[in-house]
Design a protein around this nucleic acid. Structure first.
Length: 299
DNA sequence: CGGCTGAGTCGCTATTAATA
DNA sequence: TATTAATAGCGACTCAGCCG
């Protein structure tokens, strides 16, 4: 199928995207006429992007204490207007997420860029990433699981985020490293696709003044081993979010230890799968981190 | 206090959709 | 086709806040 962009949504989709229970959405429609979805000829509700947008806006107002009954009395154009007013004042978090979600469902790059520009005008890139991108990505994972969004939606969004990380990374890379006692090599195991975390980590490491070598995904240990001939004091950093599988992860880690830990090299591991690593008999220079914050504090 | 209102939820049934 | 899961719609319920 070529055109599988989602333009109609079920009530369950709206529940997943807005956090408002389907039950409640129905009762809002019945009592306050906030939405008038189309129906199938068998009476099932079908919502379009405008409906979704309106519900997300209403949800935001609702979170800020506006009564549903009051919102319902507003003329159509007042709702987005109020939303803009609120967000220009305080806590831009919710609005940014709402905007990013709309951009994603609509494949609207411009909305993504505008929202990002607006955030970056008052925050650092680190803040934007931690306060907005990370929560968004986390939520995307859930939305994908529940099949509210397609892989196309998720890839669209994660690609735009990657692009931003790379832009900010490049601006750091053109500077000379200030610390040369270590070098960081970043990679992902075979078949591991989730590289956003690793890309961002590179940005953080560079911002601390270290040199990095980014190898990216599908990097067998043997290839990492080649680097030990060229450099000393390497810290190998790898994310394990879905690979290696828990059945082989300890074998994998052991192999890393044998092949990579020459001289003062270290191996740092993080990501969801590290919880399956047996931490008892680990070599000293293999370190496991449960969060990115923890990692950054160590550098 | 007691009753009222608004908002959200619960429980139920019938209908529709999805899946084996 | 038979069975299971989702959805719609309804009345009733809970809970909080308000008011006389």
């Amino acid at each position: 199928m070529i055109n599988n962009i989602k333009t109609v949504f079920s009530i369950k989709d709206l529940e997943n995207l807005s956090g408002i229970k389907a039950h409640t959405i129905r009762i809002w429609e019945k009592r306050y006429n906030i939405l008038e979805p189309m129906r199938t000829d068998t009476n099932i509700r079908l919502y379009n992007l405008q409906n979704l947008q309106k519900l997300l806006n209403i949800t935001l107002l609702h979170e800020y204490g506006y009564k549903i009954s009051k919102i319902a009395t507003y003329p159509e154009e007042k709702i987005p207007q109020l939303v803009r007013e609120i967000i220009s004042k305080k806590n831009s978090q919710n609005y940014a997420i709402t905007s990013f979600k709309m951009a994603m469902m609509n494949f609207d790059q411009e909305l993504f860029f505008n929202t990002f520009d607006w955030l970056i005008s008052e925050k650092t890139f680190k803040e934007v990433f931690k306060e907005h991108f990370l929560p968004l990505l986390k939520e995307l994972g859930l939305l994908w699981q529940s099949e509210t969004i397609t892989p196309a939606n998720e890839h669209f969004m994660s690609h735009l985020i990657k692009q931003k990380i790379l832009i900010y990374t490049e601006s750091l890379q053109i500077q000379k490293p200030t610390k040369t006692d270590r070098i960081f090599v970043l990679s992902l195991p075979l078949n591991e696709i989730h590289q956003i975390g690793l890309l961002y980590l590179q940005y953080e490491i560079l911002s601390k003044g270290y040199k990095t070598i980014y190898l990216g995904e599908s990097m067998p240990i043997e290839n990492l081993q080649d680097l030990t001939k060229h450099f000393e004091n390497i810290t190998f950093v790898s994310f394990m979010t879905i690979q290696p599988d828990r059945s082989v992860i300890n074998q994998y880690v052991k192999s890393m230890g044998q092949k990579l830990l020459q001289k003062n090299n270290e191996v740092w591991l993080m990501g969801k799968m590290v919880e399956h690593i047996d931490r008892k008999n680990l070599p000293e220079r293999i370190r496991i981190f449960d969060s990115m914050e923890e990692t950054m504090e160590t550098i």
